[in-house]
């Protein structure tokens, strides 16, 4: 089998396994965790599409998650509820109500369009300048979300988003993201973008139009961020702009860096590992608090452990757990070597 196909099948298989195991156990908590994991997968894989192929750290990603969440909310909150949820909403938008599935797709498109318009001038930048401007982009998006009360309810929580995301939907989108990311990576744009990641001068000397390649990846990444945000919105049903800011950025970046930003395998493995660790730590935290060993509540254990894990990975294995080869390639090579050894 073609090794890229093998990678896509194996990674999708992991998601299928997650769904089957969760359904078999039938525990509600697990269902919530697994659904959140699938949403994280969509977000991390989206970030991998830009960061992994271009080699540029982007802080803006979660901002586009917010764009997606709000767009989908606006398109789906029932007309009679809009008066309460968004008292200052523009009259034209009050009557709009589409199916959540359509809204989730449109949320991705909206995030992609916003990304396309905002980011083109930034794609010439590399290194520190690119990272800082992506951070500025996140701040701009956050500021708009907290202040454009007409459509976001400002810094306050927006209620009344219809519940539409279940494990199956989230898992389906996660699989689509996996396939999309593997296909993008192997496409003409993806391959040339990776070349520019490894050596900008050499890639330009071959004739690669680097800003353009980056821009395409940024748009595709924002699409998945928007879809991920919408999925999440229709899962939790109420949120405020703070959900799309530094904490979430840190978690998603942590997943990608630990797994290995250069590979889709890394993105998937990172999301699984960090989610697993988070949930275990959260239950440890709850136990500790139940035991009342300390005078105060134990909080923030998860974030600190994630930070330490990120530091450890960056020191010991700077490229993450899967730094350059996808799982399909790793297995195909191991298999080929074994055959050579036997012959």
């Amino acid at each position: 089998m073609n090794r890229h196909l093998l990678t896509a099948v194996l990674l999708s298989g992991l998601v299928v396994l997650l769904v089957v195991a969760t359904e078999a156990l039938g525990v509600r908590v697990f269902d919530r965790i697994a659904t959140n994991l699938c949403v994280s997968l969509v977000l991390v894989i989206g970030l991998q599409i830009f960061m992994g192929n271009s080699g540029i750290l982007s802080f803006a990603h979660i901002g586009f998650m917010g764009v997606g969440a709000y767009v989908s909310a606006l398109l789906t909150i029932p007309a009679q509820m809009k008066g309460m949820a968004l008292p200052d909403l523009y009259p034209i938008l009050q009557g709009i109500q589409v199916s959540p599935y359509l809204a989730i797709a449109l949320a991705g498109v909206a995030a992609a369009v916003v990304a396309a318009v905002m980011s083109y001038p930034l794609m010439r930048l590399s290194d520190a300048a690119a990272v800082i401007t992506s951070f500025a982009l996140l701040v701009v998006l956050h500021t708009v979300m907290t202040n454009w009360s007409n459509v976001t309810n400002g810094p306050r929580t927006l209620f009344g988003v219809p519940k539409a995301t279940d494990l199956l939907l989230a898992a389906g989108v996660a699989v689509a993201a996996i396939v999309g990311a593997v296909a993008f990576k192997e496409s003409r744009t993806g391959l040339l973008l990776r070349a520019s990641r490894d050596d900008e001068v050499a890639a330009a000397a071959l004739g690669a139009h680097i800003p353009h390649l980056r821009w395409r990846a940024f748009i595709v990444a924002a699409f998945f961020a928007g879809v991920g945000g919408a999925l999440w919105g229709h899962f939790v049903t109420s949120f405020s702009p703070n959900a799309f800011y530094l904490h979430q950025t840190f978690v998603i970046l942590g997943m990608l860096v630990i797994g290995g930003a250069n590979t889709v395998t890394g993105a998937v493995v990172g999301a699984f590992l960090v989610t697993g660790a988070f949930e275990s730590l959260r239950s440890v935290e709850a136990r500790l608090n139940d035991l009342k060993l300390f005078n105060d509540q134990v909080v923030g254990l998860t974030e600190i452990v994630l930070a330490l894990a990120m530091i450890a990975v960056l020191i010991l294995r700077p490229g993450g757990l899967f730094p350059s080869r996808e799982i399909g390639a790793v297995l195909a090579r191991a298999f080929a070597n074994k055959k050579k050894g036997a012959a």
Binding site: L191, R194, A195, R197, D198, D199, V201, A202, A203, N262, G319, P323, S324
Partner: peptide
């Protein structure tokens, strides 16, 4: 100046 994290054939 090779593309170090890519395979030779991809280079």
């Amino acid at each position: 100046r090779l593309f170090n994290e890519m395979t030779v054939v991809e280079n």
